Structure formats: structure tokens, C-alpha cells
Amino acid sequence: MAKDGLGRLGVWIHYASLTPQLLGEVEELGYGTVWLGGSPPPDWEGLEAPLAATRSIVVGTSIVNVWATPAEQAVQGFHRFDDKFPGRYFLGVGAGHREHTGTYAKPYDALAAYLDVLEAGGVPRERRALAALGPRVAKLAADRSAGALPYLTVPEHTASLRELLGPEALIVTEHKVVLDEDAERARATARPRVGYYLGLSNYVSNLRRFGFTDEDLTEPGSDRFIDAVVAHGSAEQIAARLDEHLRAGADQVAVQVLAEDPLPTLRALAPLLATPSE
């Protein structure tokens, strides 16, 4: 799958929220990919009806957790959906968080071994990617998959990944949004949804690389931190922030709407993000 087959615009949602109606409208709005969070099973039966109800939109996992799902199951899930909906299933995998995994050890080695099984099982390199923040895993992602799926990050990180990985690697950057022009209210909406991540060492370590301090990264997070990782304001202001990732080298920005119903925000953003950056 070529990078442009995923589109410039994606949507990130929890996999349990996916319905045929939601995927259908997201496709009609022009988003090229929906990324399923929440560590979805790679053979999740709930995916079949949304794919059957749509024409071309790609659905990817973001991510299948290598500690929770055997690689053989990921291979079977990939082929199940690819056989029935050719070219429309993308396998994103990652090592999750050491704080939540009792067996978490040497995640680089675990990812490399997982990729061995995916490769042997016929999952094409261009149809798999890795959750990647630090340079070592990012290089693994570029060397042995389509590329990287960074999460909870900033355009400066996107730019650093592009410089590290070169022009060919896929970079899909997730970014959270709150459509609300009242900054204090938007931060109040966002803070409970992102403060949780400040207890996870991989995100904190990555953000420190880009100038965030202990004050910023102590739960529930400073206003500076919230404003950096959650775009808020008018649709135009949010679109401008998301476009910074595209200008920094992302192939796609995956929009995660921090609202019970993401569609009003996705409707507002779609026409503003449809034109390529200059």
C-alpha cells in the first residue's frame, strides 16, 4: 500500500466506538483512514460490518499490543480481513507501556521478534507499522515496516522523525482536538483525558526531549503541556495546528476528537484540512 493510499487525513477512535454509520460518514467526509485504539484484537469481529458498509476507507490498528496478542493471531487477523476487503486493513503494532505489563522487558527485541512472525506469515511490509517515539524503535519501524505511528506528541517530534527516517518512511501522527473557543473550558475538557498519560514513562521521556519540564509533566499537566498536545479553539485554529504536523513531515495526521460524538468536529475540520500544505 502506497503512503498516499492512506490519505492525508485520518481519524483515531477507540475500537469499540466503530460502527458502520460512523465509518461511512467519515469516509464521505474525505478521511482516508480510521485508526482503532484501545489495543483492539487483530481479528475483532466488529470490524467486518463497518468495512462491508463502506467502499475504500482503510482501517488500521493503533495498536495491537505485542504482549497481549500472539503474533500468529495478528497474522490470521490480517489475512482474514485482507482476503475479504483487499487493501483496506492495516496492521499497527506496539509494545504498550511497562507500567501496565508485568512481562514488559526488552520491548525492542519483542517488537523485532513479532515482526519476524508477521513477515513469515505474509503480512506485507507496506501494510504494517510500529508505534514509535524514540529513535531506536523508529528506525526499526522504518527498516522493517512501512513506518511509524507516533502518539501524544508535537510537530517538533514529527520533524525529528522525518529527519531520522528519511523521505520514504510512513509517519502517521495522532493529535487530540477539542472544538471549543473558550481556552479554559477546552483545557478542562482535555486535562482528564491526557493527564493520565503523564504516568507513563515512554510518553514523558519523549516529551522531555522537546523541552517540557517536570512542572509541565507532573499530573495533571501544565497549560503549556495541554496546549501542545491538544489542539483547541475554532475549527480554523485547530486545522492550523494539525497542519503543523503535515508541514513537519507527517504523511497523515490522525485526529482524535475528545468528545463523546466526534462527528461534529470531524465535519468542521474536513474541508479545512483537505488542501495539501504549501
Rank of each mutant, 00 (worst) to 15 (best):
A110W: 13
E174G: 11
D227N: 14
R136F: 01
E48K: 06
V154K: 09
I57G: 02
E181G: 14
H175C: 03
T153A: 09
G24S: 15
V137F: 06
G38V: 13
S17V: 01
R187F: 01
A110P: 11
A129Q: 07
L130Y: 05
A148F: 02
Y203W: 06
V58N: 09
P86W: 13
L258Q: 10
F225M: 13
A95T: 02
L18V: 13
Q76D: 14
G87E: 05
A159R: 06
A159I: 05
A138M: 00
E181C: 08
E168S: 10
L23N: 10
L149K: 15
G32R: 08
H14F: 12
G221Q: 10
A248C: 09
H175S: 08
G32C: 05
R8E: 04
G249W: 04
E28M: 13
G60Q: 01
Y151C: 11
T69Y: 15
R88H: 08
H157Y: 05
T101P: 07
K139C: 00
T218C: 10
F81M: 08
E27Y: 12
G92S: 07
A148I: 01
R224Y: 07
A254F: 04
V93Q: 04
A120H: 06
V178G: 11
F225E: 07
S56G: 12
Y108M: 15
L258V: 09
I171R: 00
G7F: 06
P107K: 05
E219N: 04
V229P: 10
E236T: 13
L51R: 05
A138D: 01
T275L: 06
Y203L: 04
E168A: 03
L198N: 09
L179I: 08
P167H: 02
S39V: 14
H157V: 00
I226M: 03
K106R: 15
A250D: 02
D182L: 05
E236S: 12
T61A: 15
P50I: 10
L217R: 05
S277V: 15
A240E: 15
P50E: 12
L164E: 07
A2F: 09
W35Q: 08
S145D: 01
L6K: 10
G10Y: 01
L198Y: 07
P271S: 10
A268I: 07
L6Y: 14
G211F: 09
D82V: 03
G122A: 11
A49H: 14
D227A: 08
V26G: 08
T19I: 14
